[in-house]
């Protein structure tokens, strides 16, 4: 009898300890955010990611099962700048989670932390899929990583103030590793300083800015509009004698036009990842920048 009582008490004690230490349920929209959240939250977070690394970030499949994950979330980190506009609002509505409803405290829009570029003066869909807030692919520039990491750190602290030191420590050691990497990335981008680039979609504008390169042309005639033969011919004509360094394709758009343009305009092409887990070798946020910067400066 005594034994049973002891066992019950012990079980209760252990489970209460476990409950107290239950990880924060974090939901993020994209794999790159998952990678950073894991660096800062470590064992104190349980992360669910809505999009896959191989999806077009503008057209993520709104899987109904995601509603169940949002329903349980303690905090939701989003990229923002309307990148999630097509799939997230209805899922949030269905999830009915007061913590992460639009306007609630634990829906963290990380684009608010960084300075967005390419903000259109006039917004019209006749210009294609434009984002009124500016270019939403800011995370592809490693220079924006500290701001994103700090946003995530502050969000996690808001959920669990008791673990403030833990998150701060992880964040600063993460950023220290980042500083070391940054030197290497800076010197690699330095090699292509001032170059001209052609890209498929307006994905790498922030990277081009870091490398002080200019985007010479886009394979899409307008954002989100597939290329036409006529448009490709125009690019070829325009690029003639302009010494364009590279044509950038990416993992989720078709690469046929990239290869064709490369062949006809005699400009080498490179296929870059747009997110973590887009290619097998892009396992985390550091390997994302390693691959982007590495391939671009090759």
């Amino acid at each position: 009898m005594k034994n049973i009582l002891l066992t019950v008490l012990l079980t209760l004690f252990i489970s209460s300890v476990l409950l107290a230490e239950e990880p924060i349920k974090v939901v993020v929209t994209y794999p790159y955010l998952e990678s950073i959240v894991k660096e800062i939250g470590k064992e104190k977070v349980d992360v669910s990611t809505l999009a896959k690394g191989t999806e077009d970030p503008h057209f993520v499949v709104p899987k109904p099962s995601l509603i169940g994950r949002l329903r349980q979330a303690d905090i939701l980190f989003i990229n923002g700048a309307s990148l999630e506009i097509g799939f997230l609002p209805p899922l949030l509505k269905q999830a009915n989670n007061t913590k992460i409803n639009p306007g609630a405290d634990y829906l963290i829009d990380l684009s608010k932390r960084v300075e967005l570029i390419d903000k259109p003066e006039n917004v019209s869909r006749s210009e294609g899929d434009v984002h009124p807030e500016g270019n939403p692919h800011y995370y592809l520039s490693y220079n924006n990583l500290p701001k994103i990491a700090e946003g995530i750190r502050d969000g996690l602290i808001k959920v669990r103030p008791g673990s403030k030191e833990f998150f701060e420590k992880n964040c600063s050691s993460f950023l220290k590793r980042y500083e070391e990497k940054k030197e290497k990335w800076d010197s690699l981008l330095g090699k292509i300083n001032g170059c001209k680039l052609i890209q498929y979609h307006r994905l790498f504008n922030y990277v081009a800015k870091d490398a002080k390169c200019t985007i010479f042309a886009e394979i899409e005639p307008k954002p989100g509009i597939p290329p036409t033969a006529k448009h490709l011919e125009e690019i070829i004509k325009k690029a003639n004698g302009q010494s364009v360094l590279k044509i950038i394709g990416d993992d989720y758009h078709e690469t046929k036009s990239v290869k064709r343009l490369s062949e006809e305009a005699k400009i080498p092409y490179v296929i870059l990842p747009h997110d973590v887990k887009s290619f097998d070798e892009v396992k985390d946020i550091f390997s994302l920048y390693d691959t982007v910067v590495g391939r671009l400066s090759e």
């Binding site: 109904p64 099962s65 169940g68 994950r69 269905q94």
Partner: peptide, 12 residues
Amino acid sequence: LTYTFPVDFLLQ
């Protein structure tokens, strides 16, 4: 009135 269960899939 809807109720969504706190599980990792959708149950509503």
